[in-house]
Design a protein around this nucleic acid. Structure first.
Lengths: 134, 134
DNA sequence: CTTGGTACTTACCTAAAGGTGCATACTTGT
DNA sequence: ACAAGTATGCACCTTTAGGTAAGTACCAAG
């Protein structure tokens, strides 16, 4: 019975025994408050930093830059520095990134299609939480 | 703090002006370390709490319960309490939840298909970060 | 009669994600 | 001359999501 205390030392088996499927791997990449938005937005094509920042509303410079770097390190996007004098930089999806961003589309669609439902739910959620907390 | 820029109609337009599409709404629901996994796993059908906990490896009771509650509040899953004496409870996707979970499949597929690439990348990432930090 | 399994709850704590604000180096517009 | 826009870097701070460890009520098995 005593299941040999498997040293659970973060053995990076990526695919956990049986269940987790590839979702795990994907989540490791898109987890970050703005990453999905960034990726999805980049589907529109090369985008300058400033555009991106204006598009992803309410993101701070620090975090935007940071997440862009991580996404770059993860090989889903590429940074293009034109080394011009007022800095000019833009970001593009790699092949990998494009397929990833496309995989996000159903989520976007779902959100759009259920927008109405969502609004109701987000309203109800408050009262629901309050009940439970009281 | 007061982003008084937009004195818009008090109605939170969910879809930010122009860009954000439904992805925003979706992200509000699936953001949570284990939520996508939970949803995706529930595609297999009604699942007891214990099963879920064993399936979603390394999640703690507190958080699992918590995320289940939130997902329930968000109307994507339903909790079934059989009110039996050793507690028996299971969780099922609602119609809404099912469509959401299905929208997650491409992500799962993507992760699976690019598993190899991911492994390389996760390895490289470390050295990449170290370089940049040094 | 102690242990284990069921499905939770609660109090407490920590790591990390994200936000704020300042600085940079250069150019264009007023 | 000075503000503004360009794309960042950095120090600092707050929030919070998530983890830990304990307890609950009940039953079955050893």
């Amino acid at each position: 019975m005593s299941q040999a205390h498997q040293a659970n030392t973060a053995a990076p088996t990526l695919v956990a025994p049986g269940f987790t499927c590839g979702l795990d791997a994907t989540l490791k990449i898109i987890s970050g408050k703005w990453k999905p938005l960034i990726l999805y937005f980049l589907l529109r094509g090369p985008t300058r930093y400033g555009e991106l920042k204006r598009a992803v509303r309410d993101v701070s410079d620090k975090v935007l830059i940071q997440q862009l770097k991580e996404l770059e390190a993860d090989g889903v996007l590429r940074r293009n520095d034109y080394k011009e004098v007022p800095p000019r930089v833009d970001y593009t999806l790699t092949q990998l990134g494009q397929s990833l961003a496309q995989a996000l589309e159903p989520l976007c669609t779902w959100g759009t299609e259920n927008m109405a439902e969502m609004q109701k739910i987000f309203a109800e959620r408050d009262s629901w939480l309050r009940e439970k907390q009281a």
